[in-house]
Design a protein around this nucleic acid. Sequence first.
DNA 1: ATAATTTATTACCACTGTTAATATTTTTTA
DNA 2: TAAAAAATATTAACAGTGGTAATAAATTAT
Lengths: 204, 204
Amino acid sequence: MEKEKKSDDKKNTKRQRIKMYFLEAAEEIIQAEGHESVSVRKVANKAGYSYATIYNYFTDLNELLWATKEIMVNKLYKTIIEKIQGVEFDISGIKKVFSIYAEYYFENPNIFRFFYFYRLNRPERGGEDTSNELDITGMWRDTFMSFVADGSIKEQDIEIVAKTIIYAVHGMIALCLSNNGDLTEENLHKDLEKMIDYLLLKKQ
Amino acid sequence: MEKEKKSDDKKNTKRQRIKMYFLEAAEEIIQAEGHESVSVRKVANKAGYSYATIYNYFTDLNELLWATKEIMVNKLYKTIIEKIQGVEFDISGIKKVFSIYAEYYFENPNIFRFFYFYRLNRPERGGEDTSNELDITGMWRDTFMSFVADGSIKEQDIEIVAKTIIYAVHGMIALCLSNNGDLTEENLHKDLEKMIDYLLLKKQ
DNA sequence: ATAATTTATTACCACTGTTAATATTTTTTA
DNA sequence: TAAAAAATATTAACAGTGGTAATAAATTAT
């Protein structure tokens, strides 16, 4: 058994609290200015510390941003969950869910760009291995299954249909936010609806 | 009429040649090390010039990289065109085309990341407004149309089917190369085939 | 109260994009 | 060909970057 210092808990919570200052500062900068604008100096300054202090709490910038991303993914998760409360479990509901998802990123393009345009390395230790995956199609598994019962889709096709939607939605947003192609937000929503219709409606 | 200096042509070709030195240097660095590693100094050094000389040929780094991207997109275009020579115009051909497309990026992940993870601003002047778009589905329009004749797809659905494939392919590659999710290259190709089958095969 | 430990800071390092002033080379004019 | 003009290349400097090492300050344990 290790020798326990009396106030280990307090120390850890304080340490955790200070870590949060840096994480919140980083998140604010990413959201407002984009991940390209994040710098150790800026984060430290915003958190009220000198620049080198960060290295007392994180091994490097990558680890800081990895932890920041975890927090931001969880926030996205919660936000989407909230926003889809009360949405009908039918085809129009599915359209709505993915529209809400896309909308979130259009309102916060810097978040999408941070998530998908910036390659973070998984830290050796730390990064509490939360999965960080938003499994929208999983959440709507029952709804998707109803299209099997309905006869629109074969059971073995459900998985690829769900995946196709997820892949395509991310592809659309990426194309928009990277200034490639000429897809606009408006057309994205139109294409999204058409695509879901095509994938889920029984062909006559 | 403007006063014409005798050797305007020669000067322009020389100027153009030197610009190419920089562009080729930038391309090499992007391909080998990724766009994060590009720096004015490195490009200039590789091209055999001092760092500030670049600003005699490009207004800034953004313009240099924009021009670099144009060249790289054209190369991608040519490469794909070559590789799909002789591919059958049928459903397996379509699968092959997009597999080849995805493969290109897996062999050159830094190119994909440069194209889609790095936001360039369209320069005020210059950037000869080449469209820079690789319209794979357009190239295979006739093939897609054959699925109309075949009865698998309604004519008005052709467009969204083609778009869905393009969107999803980009989404898949982006998810892979940004270290999000757990999609591997192998599974990507499997999903690609399943998706194309689902989208193009007549449901029984 | 003193020793030990943790935490914060400043001073550096080699790097970044960009600009300005200077040096060099090339071209045009006389 | 010689001098003037224009184009091109270079170095110096600026404010910024991520990260390290040594030092200063505050906290905790003995």
